[in-house]
């Protein structure tokens, strides 16, 4: 039996007690998946998994607060579940976790770049062991899977769900790259270059808040301080400074909480590389507090606690 069948069977067994189970189905074309809310066995037929099932479905969990739901998670997504549990934003008893052992997901952006022209509507996608065969307008192109994997998969150290009620597939022995070349390259730039980069990038931002809405840790929803009058942190002025300020709000609220699922960057319609900020902040958190969000259950987020003596914070003498 395939992994998909195992998963379907597992879901079938639990569906009766659940409001729904959140998975993926094919979206508007063969290349794009979309979330699927499984409420009946009939819905199960549409369920897909694999490299195209990119969404972090944990984003939807807090919306079901008070109801018992199931969710299908990849390794990285399971970190978001753990973080939500650690922050008591969801109740462990209210969620059934169908964990996957994930071989990586694609980056739509990389596929788009690898194809000769903007694909528009993709007719079919054949997923092989190490390549993708994408047919657009009658023409087929074969892409090496390793070339179009999402950045997060290249440095992934948690391919298998860390927490789950049912674990589907064969666990991996992860061998992640130490760091991402693009991250290192960017960090090596001078302050002036980085400043100019964000200035330019943020002038592109249309403040659609897709990054926020896709984020599994952004639980404020309608009460985000980016769009409130009291408190009034941001004006609606669409200028680089205000747009950057919003990103600073986002990164500040994610400090010690971000599970690096990459949904913000994936959701961005104007391709702002938000993960540059996230990964950098996460490394600072790891350096100072020796913890990573969503890796360990029952861990207090670092900014909600303190030590009288902080071993890794240098009290600057003045």
């Amino acid at each position: 039996m395939s992994q998909l069948d195992d998963l379907k069977n597992a879901i079938k067994g639990r569906l009766g007690e659940l409001e729904c189970v959140i998975g993926w189905e094919q979206g508007y074309d063969s290349l794009h998946a979309t979330p699927l809310f499984i409420r009946s066995e009939a819905d199960l037929d549409r369920l897909i998994i694999g490299p195209l099932a990119v969404h972090n479905l944990v984003t939807y969990l807090t919306g079901f607060k008070g109801k018992k739901v199931g969710v299908v998670v990849k390794g990285c997504d399971s970190r978001s579940v753990i973080q939500l549990l650690n922050e008591k934003l969801i109740n462990r008893d209210d969620v059934v976790i169908f964990g996957l052992c994930c071989d990586g997901v694609v980056s739509q952006r990389k596929i788009r770049a690898a194809l000769p022209a903007d694909p528009g509507f993709v007719e079919s996608v054949e997923i092989g062991a190490s390549d993708l065969k994408v047919t657009v307008a009658g023409q087929a192109a074969t892409l090496r899977l390793s070339d179009v994997l999402a950045d997060k998969c290249l440095i992934c150290d948690t391919p298998d769900a860390i927490v789950s009620d049912v674990l589907i597939g064969t666990p991996h022995t992860p061998a992640p790259a130490a760091s991402l070349a693009c991250q290192d390259e960017f960090e090596a730039k001078s302050d002036a270059e980085k400043f100019a980069f964000w200035q330019e990038t943020m002038s592109r931002c249309i403040r659609c808040y897709a990054c926020r809405n896709a984020c599994p840790m952004c639980v404020c929803r309608d009460h985000c301080i980016a769009t409130s009058r009291d408190p009034l942190w941001l004006s609606q002025d669409n200028s680089p400074a205000e747009n950057m300020m919003f990103q600073m709000v986002h990164v500040s609220h994610l400090a010690g909480r971000c599970t690096e699922c990459g949904e913000c960057e994936r959701a961005c319609p104007v391709d702002i590389p938000l993960m540059l900020l996230r990964r950098y902040m996460n490394r600072q958190v790891k350096d100072v507090f020796e913890m990573q969000a969503g890796k360990v259950l029952d861990q207090t987020p670092p900014l909600l606690t303190f030590k009288v003596q902080e071993e890794r914070i240098n009290e600057r003498g003045w």
Partner: peptide, 29 residues
């Protein structure tokens, strides 16, 4: 994170007003 709990007499808006009084934001338009 939502600014739902505010310290009276030292609310976000009051402190932000002080910040904005000292460094007026430069508007696009």
């Amino acid at each position: 994170p939502q600014g739902a709990i505010q310290l009276e007499h030292f609310t976000d808006n009051q402190i932000l007003a002080e910040v904005n009084a000292l460094c007026p934001p430069k508007m696009f338009a």
